[in-house]
Design a protein around this nucleic acid. Structure first.
Lengths: 230, 230
DNA sequence: ACGGAGTTTAACTGTTTGGTAAAAATTGCT
DNA sequence: AGCAATTTTTACCAAACAGTTAAACTCCGT
């Protein structure tokens, strides 16, 4: 009856759960719910979002949705987790293509901007969570994000030591990159009004990426080879 | 009984309301309530904040508070209005001291950072409102903020025309300044974790201001006279 | 086609919370 | 002191909403 099929039975061996019809459709449902939840949480905040609204947008009843995610908290956690995973994937300066600091940083910035464009709602949920003091996320930031960031910080420090960058605090540099790129997702409402557009276009994001990379790279003394005209 | 004393009887003549004992204490109460509301809205969001919590923090009963602000909406609007007013005061590049673009921009950036430091809660409420699509604010942004911003945009454009700045889109430049400065208020939770501090200090804000001005000014080709060491 | 695992629906419930109505208390002015 | 304007408290209410229980239904492998 209520026996939920476990996806990960064992935590040692990575046993692939056999993909039955059931579990396939379950995945699809969970996906639709998570997408709807991301939208609704982004627009109304955690407390403003209601299970009914999310369920309706996902195309099922609230009770039915509660069958897939046992509580609002759980659903929210999952949404947060997903976006943090994606965010962390796009981090790691080290893994970015390019050899010189300039191209690595440009790729990094462009990835972040791309994330703002493609996942604005996830970004908003994340932002709202941080604004509220990151009550559900501080542990993850400390334990997962911070260690990976340390690597990037070391890399930037080595660039500085080699004289390839102005002597700046890498951590503040990352705050700068994160804020300038995320603002196009989080504050899109304000930006749309100021640009006089009902919606930001791919071109707007390209403009943003170009300006941000220009200013930051030049600003930290990591000039690209060819000085692009704006 | 319930006859509220009107502060502005006439909208034509600016009649000063006589400062009775009552109205004096009322002002004080309203002030305390607004401060408490700003804190609570910042921490829990509009829907997460409850009148009871706000009232408790302001040191009176919910019903009593409702005597001063007739509804949650009204209270929230007032909080938003206040912070928008302050925000707009700190804008207006034109009125900033300094003659050359570099010093004007530096003053602008430093004011914004200072605002993040002194009014983090207001900034957070503002940010959350924008994230949620600015439902209570889009009119004000369009009608009050935008016109004043246009002046600043024109000024930057004239600087560009005179060859004193790289040819960049002024609007995106402002998005950059706003996001980099506000992030120290809005995302303080994240920044504190990464900097390994329980609270941001005045020194942290000074570091931020220095880095942001260095990178942006150099990045847009508006170098200061003396190239400060970092 | 049948049995059971898995899914959906219907009917509730307890609590939280924004807001109201009116009585009670306090304050300030003459 | 006395009275009216203002403030505070008491007692409620209705709606919204997360979550529960159990019954009904559907799907799928054998």
């Amino acid at each position: 009856m209520l026996f939920r099929q476990e996806y990960e039975m064992s935590n040692k061996s990575t046993v692939k759960p056999k993909m039955t019809q059931y579990s396939r459709s379950r995945k699809k449902h969970e996906c639709r719910i998570l997408k709807a939840a991301e939208e609704v949480f982004a627009q109304f905040g955690y407390n403003g979002a209601t299970l009914d609204t999310i369920a309706e947008r996902a195309g099922l009843s609230k009770q039915n949705m509660l069958y897939y995610f046992a509580s609002k908290q759980q659903l929210y956690q999952k949404v947060l987790q997903n976006i943090l995973d994606i965010w962390m994937d796009s981090m790691a300066l080290l893994t970015q293509p390019g050899k010189d600091p300039a191209s690595k940083l440009e790729n990094y910035i462009r990835r972040k901007i791309e994330l703002s464009r493609t996942r604005p709602n996830g970004s908003k949920v994340f932002a709202a969570e941080i604004i509220n003091g990151a009550p559900h996320l501080s542990a993850d930031i400390k334990n997962r994000l911070l260690p990976r960031l340390e690597e990037d910080i070391s890399l930037v420090e080595s660039w500085i030591a080699e004289g390839r960058l102005d002597p700046i605090d890498p951590r503040h540099l990352f705050f700068m990159i994160w804020s300038t790129t995320q603002t196009y997702a989080d504050f899109s409402a304000q930006i749309e009004i100021i640009l006089g557009k009902p919606e930001l276009t791919a071109g707007d994001f390209e403009d943003a990426a170009r300006l941000i990379t220009h200013v930051i790279l030049k600003g930290i003394g990591a000039q690209q080879k060819e000085d692009k005209r704006l």
